[in-house]
Design a protein around this nucleic acid. Structure first.
Lengths: 239, 239
DNA sequence: TGTTTAATGATTATCGATGATGATCAGTTT
DNA sequence: AAACTGATCATCATCGATAATCATTAAACA
C-alpha cells in the first residue's frame, strides 16, 4: 500500500471552503488506522516502523511520528526503545477508558450544544448517514471510520481546544471493542449504533442539558453492553 | 545551553528503584519549559527549531518532536509549515482551560484518593516541600517546576492511563498565568499557593469525596483569582 | 553447572541534509 | 494604482543513513 500523492486531484471543492492540509504523518496515521479497522492489524500485532515505511512509501522517521500520535491516542502501545504493537485492552483498561469517556464526552456535548450551528449539525449528520450506509453494507471498516469521525467532530464542536486535545486520549473509544482481544469482531447491531448517534445529534439540538444527559446515559449503556459482550465472549472476564 | 549527558553521574540511586529513562526529546522539552519558567522565553516568542537545536546540541528533528509534544500540551502554538511560538492565552482560552481543569482534576483526585499509597503521599510531599523552599527563596522557576511536577504526579496517581494522557492537555495549567501575556509575572502569594497544595495532599488522604470537593473548590478559587488579577493588570479584559 | 560477560540481531531514536511551504518584495501588466 | 507574476528567503516537514538500545544467544568463567 502506497500513500496516494494525488488524493485531491479528482475531488472538486464545490463550497470553496479551505481544504484541510494533511501532513504525511497524518496520512500514515490514517493508513494504519484503516488497517486496524479492517482487521488487517489486530491487537498485539507488532508495528515495525521500517516495514510500514517501505509499505507506505515514506521514511521510517515519519512512521515513528505517526505511531507516537497513535500512542498518545491509546491506539498503539509504544515501548520505549523496543517496539510498537496495536493496543490490546484488558478489562481493567476498558473500564478506565469508559471512566474517562464518562467524564469528558458529556462535558464536550454540553459545550457543543451551546454553540451548535446548522453547519455543525450538517457535519454530524453526514457521519450518521455514513454509519447507516456502512451498517447496511455490513462494511465494518467504513462504519468504524464514520463513528470515529463523528466523535472527533463532536469534540471539535465544543470550541474548546483544551477539551479537544484532552479528548484525543479517548480517540480509541469508538472502536475500543476491536482493541479488546485478538478474537473476531464482536457481534453488534451496527444499525442500532448508527441510530444511537442520530439521537445524539437530536439531543445536541435540544440543548446542553439534554445532550449531557443523553451522553451519560448512552456511555453507561455502551459500557454495560461491552461488559456483557466481553464476558460472553470470555475474552477477559470482568472482575 | 547544552543538554548535559552526565545528568545521572552524580546521583546515587540508594533504593535501587529503576531509574527513569529520559529521551533526548524529553530533555529538550524540559529545557524549553525551564526557559519559559525563567522568563527567558515569553508568550508570543518564536521558537525557531534550528536555533534551539544548535543551542541545545541536538538535531532540528528532535526539537521538532519536542515542540509537537508541547503543542499537544497547549504550551506552544505550532503553526503548520510556518513557525512555533510560546502560547499567549487570551481571556477566552484561560476560561476554556479552567473549564477543562474543573472537569479533569477533581476526577483525577478522586481516583488517586482511592488507591493512594504512602509512597504516593511521599512523592507529593516532596514537591510541596520544593514549592515551600522555592517560595521562601522567591525562586519562581523552581516553584513552577515543583507545581508542574506536583500536578503531573497527581494525575499519575489516578492509575488510569487514559486520564493521565487526557490531563496532558491541561499540563500548562500550573503556570498558565505566565502564558497570559507578555507582561511581568503576576504578583502572587507563592507561600500560600504551596499551602494550597499541602491541603490537596491532606484531602487525598481523607478520601475521594474530600479530594474531589477540595479540588473543585480550589480550581474555582484560582479561577476567581486569575480573573481578578488579570483584569487588574488590564492584560486581557474579561468580557 | 550455574553465573557472569561479551557478541548478535532486531528495532528504534537521532542525526545531517534535502525538499516543500508560504511570506515578502520587486518587476510587470492592466 | 491595483493586481498579477516570479524570485528570494526563512522556516519547517521529511528523508536516508547512522548511532543507540535492549532482548537474546553464545562464550567464558568459577
Amino acid at each position: 500500500m502506497i500513500i496516494d500523492d494525488d488524493q485531491f486531484v479528482n475531488t472538486f471543492n464545490m463550497s470553496m471552503s479551505p481544504i484541510a492540509i494533511v501532513t504525511r504523518v497524518d496520512q500514515v496515521r490514517r493508513a494504519i488506522l484503516s488497517q486496524i479497522f479492517s482487521g488487517a492489524l489486530k491487537p498485539g500485532d507488532r508495528l515495525v516502523e521500517a516495514r510500514l515505511a517501505s509499505e507506505l512509501g515514506v521514511s521510517q522517521a515519519t512512521v515513528n511520528a505517526a505511531l507516537q500520535d497513535m500512542h498518545n491516542q491509546g491506539i498503539v502501545n509504544k515501548m520505549l526503545n523496543r517496539f510498537t504493537e496495536v493496543s490490546r485492552y484488558t478489562w481493567r483498561e476498558l473500564e478506565n477508558l469508559f471512566s474517562v469517556r464518562m467524564i469528558l464526552e458529556p462535558a464536550a456535548a454540553e459545550m457543543a450544544a451551546r454553540t451548535l450551528t446548522p453547519e455543525g449539525v450538517r457535519r454530524l449528520t453526514t457521519q450518521v448517514d455514513q454509519m447507516r450506509a456502512a451498517a447496511r453494507l455490513n462494511d465494518i471498516p467504513l462504519f468504524c471510520l464514520a463513528d470515529y469521525t463523528f466523535h472527533q467532530e463532536t469534540y471539535a464542536l465544543s470550541c474548546n481546544s483544551f477539551l479537544v486535545q484532552a479528548c484525543q486520549a479517548i480517540a480509541a473509544a469508538p472502536f475500543a471493542y476491536i482493541l479488546c482481544g485478538s478474537a473476531d469482531p464482536l457481534p453488534a447491531d451496527y444499525l442500532a449504533l448508527a441510530e444511537d448517534h442520530q439521537e445524539i445529534v437530536t439531543a445536541l439540538q435540544k440543548g446542553p442539558e439534554a445532550a449531557g444527559r443523553l451522553l451519560r446515559e448512552r456511555i453507561e449503556a455502551w459500557r454495560a453492553h461491552s461488559e456483557h459482550a466481553l464476558s460472553a465472549a470470555a475474552l477477559t472476564p470482568p472482575g
